[in-house]
Amino acid sequence: MHLIDSHSHFDDDSFDADRGAALTRARAAGVVAQVVPAVNARLWPRLREVCAAHPGLYPAYGLHPICLADHDRADLDQLAAWIEQERPVAVGEIGLDYYIEELDRDAQREYFLAQLGIARDARLPVVVHARHAVEDTYQLLRRFPTVRGVVHSFAGSEQQARRLIDLGYCLGFGGPVTYARANRLRTLVQRLPLESILLETDSPDQPGAQHRGERNEPARITEVLREVARLRDEDPAHVAAATYANTVRLFDLGVASQ
């Protein structure tokens, strides 16, 4: 089986000591590619370097909402230029985070809208963060009908999920779906059309139920795959093939078809 981790922060410094070994484990697990989103402008060069050094890593560049204090308005101009020069697979990680109450919501929305405009102009998909902010995220995405993307680590309602799918968005699911108490999330994975689902780890964050408190890594996407397949009562090979194809199609990845 071939798998793609559609959301991995593999450039994170927690991998500096064993990035090569972690990549070897991922490849042994069938992970042939990872989409690696950025969080702030300062780290774009590092992300580019890590992805260039390891085949199968595909960068996305953007300004993450939880890094709001790091951002400057000039970063938006820099982002547009950087994307034109680098031609990443997506604009991201961008979006809204209302879980952290001290983050200015108006400023978040301004950065989000600006980056959606950049994605539209560059004809690139977006990698969207929407923590406790799915409704506002949906309303802003509606303003850009030609933009497509993925709402990663989706945790909204089924109604919200289907409205996003109707906009042309995929939804990413990772470690949280492996927790037995995540009843709404697990029900959602059972009911959504498979062609709208992407698998992810969000490494080094969001480890699955078997690895609570540990650093997450891309090889563990197999645990997400098995749980999604079990919940849907489908063959893991079928879920792997479908989610692989979904990810290749969304990000126009240059990886071999199965």
Results as ranks from 00 to 15, higher is better:
152 H>V: 05
99 Y>C: 13
152 H>W: 11
117 G>C: 11
150 V>A: 07
142 R>Q: 15
129 H>I: 04
101 E>D: 13
95 G>P: 09
119 A>I: 09
102 E>D: 13
149 G>D: 04
128 V>S: 04
156 G>I: 07
106 D>R: 09
146 T>I: 13
146 T>W: 03
109 R>F: 03
98 Y>M: 11
107 A>M: 13
146 T>P: 00
101 E>I: 11
157 S>D: 12
98 Y>V: 06
117 G>P: 03
112 F>L: 01
139 Q>I: 11
141 L>Y: 00
96 L>E: 07
105 R>A: 05
108 Q>A: 09
122 A>S: 03
120 R>N: 12
123 R>C: 10
119 A>L: 09
113 L>C: 12
139 Q>E: 13
155 A>I: 11
118 I>N: 03
102 E>N: 08
101 E>N: 04
143 R>L: 15
147 V>S: 06
145 P>N: 14
139 Q>Y: 15
153 S>E: 07
140 L>I: 05
121 D>I: 00
101 E>P: 01
108 Q>H: 06
122 A>W: 08
141 L>P: 00
112 F>P: 02
154 F>V: 11
145 P>A: 15
118 I>V: 15
154 F>Y: 15
116 L>D: 02
135 E>A: 13
103 L>S: 09
133 A>G: 07
105 R>D: 01
114 A>E: 08
114 A>W: 01
100 I>V: 14
144 F>A: 13
142 R>I: 14
108 Q>V: 01
141 L>F: 07
116 L>A: 06
97 D>K: 05
117 G>D: 09
100 I>P: 04
113 L>E: 13
150 V>S: 06
133 A>H: 04
137 T>V: 15
105 R>P: 02
